[in-house]
Write a protein that binds this DNA or RNA. Sequence first.
DNA 1: TCTTGACTCTCCCCTTGGGGCAGCCCTTAT
DNA 2: ATAAGGGCTGCCCCAAGGGGAGAGTCAAGA
Lengths: 268, 268
Amino acid sequence: MKFSIGEFSRITSLSIKSLRLYHEKEILIPSEIDEFTGYRYYNETNIECARTIKILKEYDFSLAEIKEIIDDCGEESEMMNMLIQKKEEIEKKIDHYKNVSLSIELIIQQEKEIKMKTENEFEIEEKEVETMLIAGYRMKGKYSEVGKAYGILGKTLGRHINGKAMNLYYDSEFKEEDADFEPCFPVRKGNSGDGISVRELKGGKCVSIIHKGPYDKLGDSYKKIFSYINEKNYKTEIPSREVYIKGPGMIFKGNPNNYLTEIQVFIK
Amino acid sequence: MKFSIGEFSRITSLSIKSLRLYHEKEILIPSEIDEFTGYRYYNETNIECARTIKILKEYDFSLAEIKEIIDDCGEESEMMNMLIQKKEEIEKKIDHYKNVSLSIELIIQQEKEIKMKTENEFEIEEKEVETMLIAGYRMKGKYSEVGKAYGILGKTLGRHINGKAMNLYYDSEFKEEDADFEPCFPVRKGNSGDGISVRELKGGKCVSIIHKGPYDKLGDSYKKIFSYINEKNYKTEIPSREVYIKGPGMIFKGNPNNYLTEIQVFIK
DNA sequence: TCTTGACTCTCCCCTTGGGGCAGCCCTTAT
DNA sequence: ATAAGGGCTGCCCCAAGGGGAGAGTCAAGA
């Protein structure tokens, strides 16, 4: 029984190109090669070998590895070390892909959340905010140093973060320098220490507006919100909050004109 | 601020080769290219872009996809469909790698088991075999048709298989044709039907020998085992068993001279 | 100012696992 | 005998760069 390359290709489900490549690499050598025409002919032993190659390819071995295995091994016991090593490689890949899958899922979920929140237009509204557990890093100085605080918080809290980044403002007036504020994240759990305070942040009634645009235009929205509060004669409570619904993304910095920040001023 | 390609490479942890490639593919175009020397210079905007590219690469996007994303998207919301699609791809890869990992683990475990079993030399021994749940496919005819039975059993039982393939012999004498035997597998659970019988197979005391070599030499080992039984004046019970400890492997057919088969003849 | 060593440029070849095509030869059936 | 369909080699292509050659450039120290 001998088969031409086309027949053998159909038998083994390996493309003719692949078969020629395997021949060239001396992985799967046809049992007979016509001296004059160069035609390749394969036999049953080749079929056995082709099966082995297919399985090893499925197991993610490279052709070089496969050649080594086929040349050196007659049965599985002789390739235990290769199998163990390959399994470790594969486990690493699984780990990596799982992490990536999680990261992507996170981005997708965040985007969904943003879409939901922005369905109600950007009007002033009064609403209840629930009490939540937060981890904050209180600081005095310039606003521009918040980045450092979020860095520390992010690194320390890792997977416990449970919501959008926020900033609490303890000043009753605007201060460019020497401001008193507390960058924080909602968390599932965590421990205080190293300047980080984990505690319950009381909810309550607040006046809220979603600010669309860059952070240096937040003043416009504050103006709107305080006009509303004065009109209604509400008394405000400290601290007020900014919730960063959408800022620079994981992947793109994005366009600051599309940033979304919710301002919450709590009332008595 | 402008950086030479070397500096930019150190800043972004992208190799110079990669940076030149990204330039050629118009994915990351240096902010300035010296007209006369061809030197590439990068600025802060390029850093931002490089960060995006690195993340997308980590997320397993190809350079072509990355180019498309960077050209078309300014922020994450615009690439939701790409992210969702990529996540599906990644989940598929995870599934595939998990299957491969399982298959490899199975082979490794089987090989370990074989090593353990063959530590005691191939001598006749008397031992207790425990009762086990099996799924068998009883047939009458030629031995050579067992392959079909194992095929059916393997397909039907799938993941429930819990041990080595066995064959039960119900004839008290050797029969070439019209033999009465039952290929079977130990299983964790399963349902009878379609010719398959799932039931408890009683254990007990047996005389056992491990036969090393091709199946057509099993007669030699049977001879040894029955000599021993006659010497001891034991009475045998039907069915006797063959346990296929090591035969053709998943990957290699292997050398039949190394096949291992345990013969168990039960005694009253 | 000159030199020298470190950078950078373009080009070319190599990798893996093939796909596709051109031009030619071979086989097989009618 | 002829036509159709295989099969052969050789060449170019892909991703995502790595390695190196040979030539040109830049910046700092003497």
